[in-house]
Design a protein around this nucleic acid. Structure first.
Lengths: 251, 251
DNA sequence: TCCCCTATTGCCCCAAAGGCCAATCAGGTG
DNA sequence: CACCTGATTGGCCTTTGGGGCAATAGGGGA
């Protein structure tokens, strides 16, 4: 079905050791998807590169966690997925995983290891790994896992972009408007809100109108939906009118 | 800190093999929480029973998956958690896990096994196991995992009960009212809804009023929140005015 | 000091939401 | 057939939500 032995004219930057990442752009399939391979074993990198490229993915290989972390972060729109070796000199796969998670990275990780122990696999899965495969790796399993990872990443990116747009808008609200916002989405009447905030109804109306404009909501219903999405993110300082880039904890 | 060697007068039903489940009610700590132990090894059951009881949990042990499945399902409000052995004669732990998940059970599972292989652990974690511990089991780890499981179960039960209440109310709506409901929570005006449904505004107002009553919503905002919660469950047949018991797919 | 941003308020007016009462009509059931 | 439920519609009235216009006030910043 799938031919792993793809004979194509590919320009490998460095056949042997790649201090700089290798990239081969696949042609068909899930075009645009980017798969990172981090493994200290050159032969493993090579075969994975071959397999994934043949499957149509763009591939970038790294010989260490350090090299991967130093990669040029292109903010592209492509879905990404990381195939990570557990045991490596320097930073090992598991530590890289937790480190990335802590730094806010949400890139899906598929572990591949030759020395799989239960403890490591469980730890990896608990932290959110897509899969944990042991060598010799079943190609179909790997490709399936990578696909799951890419799909998941696409969804996460989608969600992030929506959330960022919302947070961005929320950031345009003045503190007062945010207070009113919080009460409006509760279903309170202008009169009640006015009472609670100690002002008159007319004022609330004005705030309300500005809120609808700034949040780009066409109706209270939409506003409520936004509030629900923002739910956990609300009450956050949301430093007024700051770009609020990908700093977003998705849980 | 914790004394595993609790010397208390406990009435064990059958010291040796327990075709019928054992139960010991703990006294302090997380009172009310119920922990099931399924393991074919009597000595393991015994020690876990002792450990968990000492920690204050009510414990029920079973010597096989079959015995566990045959347990008397008490619909109590207590949080539950299952400690499951992987390798057992008859139905093994992993199969019991998937079987339970497929049948809609959401009880958190903590695996404990003496023969942990990576494949099994990964499979178990992917299906949603709380943890996968290998023997000899670290008591603190086990207790921590059980506590996570119980907490998770409490949250799941809370969510389920809320969802059931909502589905219950949704079931009281007539088909027409449900149509209007769907459009109202979109933020459409009565006039627009009327146009789309081919009736007059006055009619929509009536439906709307009934919807608010039946759904027990105090405001459109609340109604929208309900719709958001029901979101995935909507469009479901929701056989009119049927009790709709725990049949609910939480994803 | 002058200007801009925010927060407030008052008046007026219109559209929309809701409540009350009454009435019609189609289906299904005892 | 009488009765009940669900879907509709009309009229009338009150409460709310929303906008426009104008004006006041306090805080900062250029």
């Amino acid at each position: 079905m799938r031919s792993t032995s793809v004979a194509r004219s590919v320009s490998r930057s460095t056949p042997g050791e790649p201090p700089r990442p290798t990239e081969r752009s696949g042609r068909g399939g899930a075009a645009g998807s980017l798969v990172f391979v981090v493994d200290d074993d050159a032969s493993v990198r090579k075969s994975l590169d071959r397999l994934l490229s043949a499957a149509g993915y763009r591939v970038q290989t790294f010989d260490s966690a350090r090299a991967f972390l130093a990669r040029t972060q292109l903010p592209g729109e492509d879905s990404q997925c990381l195939i990570l070796d557990v045991r490596m000199p320097g930073i090992n796969g598991l530590d890289l995983q937790t480190s990335m998670r802590n730094s806010g990275s949400t890139i899906p990780i598929v572990f591949s290891t030759g020395f799989g122990d239960v403890t490591s696999s469980v730890r990896a899965m608990k932290v959110g790994a897509v899969d944990f495969l042991t060598k010799p790796i079943d190609e179909d399993e790997l490709l399936a896992a990578v696909q799951r990872g890419l799909t998941l990443d696409a969804e996460t990116r989608q969600l992030k972009s929506v959330m960022n747009a919302l947070i961005q808008r929320l950031g345009r609200l003045t503190p007062r408007e945010r207070q009113v916002f919080a009460l409006v989405v509760t279903g309170m009447l202008n009169k009640q809100i006015a009472g609670q905030l100690g002002t008159c109804e007319r004022t609330i109306k004005v705030h309300r109108a500005r809120i609808m404009k700034k949040m780009e909501a066409g109706s209270v219903a939409e506003l409520v939906r936004m509030a629900v999405k923002l739910g956990p993110a609300i009450d956050a300082p949301a430093n007024d009118r700051a770009p609020v880039q990908s700093r977003l904890v998705l849980r």
